[in-house]
Amino acid sequence: MTRTMHTSRALCAAAVLLAVLAAPSSALAQGRGGGGNPQIDLTISPLSISFASANPDTTPAIVAAPIVITIRVRQNTGPWTLTVLANGDLLSGPSSVDISNVTWTATPAPPFQGGTLSKTVAQRVASGTGTVNPAQNGSVTFRLANSWTYNAANYTQTLVFTLTAP
């Protein structure tokens, strides 16, 4: 009888420990780790990237105003990566412009790097190992390849930036 009670108490204690170990997962999904887990912060300003209309002959590539991406990685010993994924092509009703016509350049390089937007595979914007503390700013400038073949319209699409560690 005494042995059974001790066994039950031990199982309860183990269950409590399991719950404690499992709990941080949800908190980290928000980018805030506890204890020795990585803590990351991602800030982008502004959250709007606009391309103005231009004649393709005189402006082969339309340059948007740069955005500033601020990243901070703490309590991390492994790799970290910042990626961007478009939720689709540039759309305006039935008209579309392939998102691969949008490219970007970024400084400082490294850790930031240039690339071409994709709607299927997240593209690397910045990467490194260990910590980034204090926070580091990156300037990212997007460009739209201008073309006579685009339908005249106002197009939009959303981009999802994701900072992950490790």
Partner: peptide, 13 residues
């Protein structure tokens, strides 16, 4: 750890 941020891309053609 993962954190996301969404930006809007717009083009006036």
């Amino acid at each position: 750890a993962a954190q996301t941020s969404t930006a809007t891309l717009s083009a006036n053609v």
